[in-house]
Design a binder for these strands. Sequence first.
DNA 1: ACTTTTTATTACCCGTGGGTAATATACGGG
DNA 2: CCCGTATATTACCCACGGGTAATAAAAAGT
Lengths: 223, 223
Amino acid sequence: MDTRAPAAESPWLPFESRRRARDEKREAVLRTAVQLFLEQGYHRATLNEVAERLNITKPALYNYFRGKDEILFECWAMGLELVETSTAAINAAGGSGLDKLRKMARAYGGLMATDFGASLVRFDVRDLGAKHRDIVLAGKKSIDRTFRGYITEGIADGSITPCDPKMTAFMIAGSLNWIGHWYKRDGTMTPEAIGETFAMQLTDGLAVRPPRKPRTTKQHTKR
Amino acid sequence: MDTRAPAAESPWLPFESRRRARDEKREAVLRTAVQLFLEQGYHRATLNEVAERLNITKPALYNYFRGKDEILFECWAMGLELVETSTAAINAAGGSGLDKLRKMARAYGGLMATDFGASLVRFDVRDLGAKHRDIVLAGKKSIDRTFRGYITEGIADGSITPCDPKMTAFMIAGSLNWIGHWYKRDGTMTPEAIGETFAMQLTDGLAVRPPRKPRTTKQHTKR
DNA sequence: ACTTTTTATTACCCGTGGGTAATATACGGG
DNA sequence: CCCGTATATTACCCACGGGTAATAAAAAGT
């Protein structure tokens, strides 16, 4: 009667044979939800459709989450966790401030091309309850501090030219965050490649620097 | 009976003396709406509250707009118009690709600190009807083309070091777009100052360049 | 095999908010 | 002064979707 193929990879096979572990299912809900939220936007996405994609019905979701906003929060939590893992590795590896900043740009930029990574910038904290919102805001603040930290560190150790760490962090994080808004899987560039490109260009600059003798700045005579 | 002070500057004085021109009112609706949309997010903001802030009632809004989504669209239209005005001025002024890119960064960055400017990046095109959505997407595409154009121009005229214009445009526009997400009026920096800072740093780079003789890249021996 | 617990289903509630119909009030012109 | 038009108001509709209660079916325990 219903000949639709089952959604990609749901632990709930269309009928019966449901015996996987609880955590696996919870995670599956999350994966499906984050996808739908990104696809349609949090408010347009309905729990009914999340459930449908998993071959279950809406109330079943309430076995794993207290409500829609908790699912949203968990998406954020996943993203934050990924970032923390990255920063931990970077801090452990050591190096100059510039080194760390570049590694961070690469890692963070790559994350922005993943579902849970994009969650960090595509969703709205105002959709969360006060409690969860505070947690997320703290996480975001921590990320910001990390960026600023690497920059001040870099200025101190001479690997980065003096600048306002706050503004520069906003600038770099902003351009990386934006990846979460435009990146589509169909693109030719892999997330890592994008992260790499951004990391280099953000820290390398654009303007041509006159190698030594700056020829009088305006010599673009012919048109 | 109702002793509340009338909202800031509404053409509708609490009772009577409503005779201002239609366009003025339409614009007032727009200004109030965009503020509320930014404050609370499009979906949480209600037309009832928009109306309330203007000392009128919801159905009165329908004298000026066909629906909520049309109001949203007009916010976008305002923002797009502002950008177009800027680019027109920049193109008229001429200069090298780098010059134009810097001017654009300054102008666009400043716009991101305004309500209608922020509309361009804080709202979701998926909230629009197909027709309006297409218009907005076309506008965004045009902005992207402008950035890319200045970059390719700059590469051609030698003011910008060779790079992938697409990626670089994403990078610069991204960091500027992000201003629309974090800028708050209470900050110490004026929008123009931010635009200026970003314009310079984005095009100047961060990494210390060894003035001439690069001393063997790793000399951060002590700690 | 029986009971208990977990997990799912069906059926429903109901708050919210965009949108509309019917109506009233003000304004401008003849 | 009266009428037509523009603009506002009150009162309402109703679709949508998050959330819940009651119940059934399956797993797990003994």
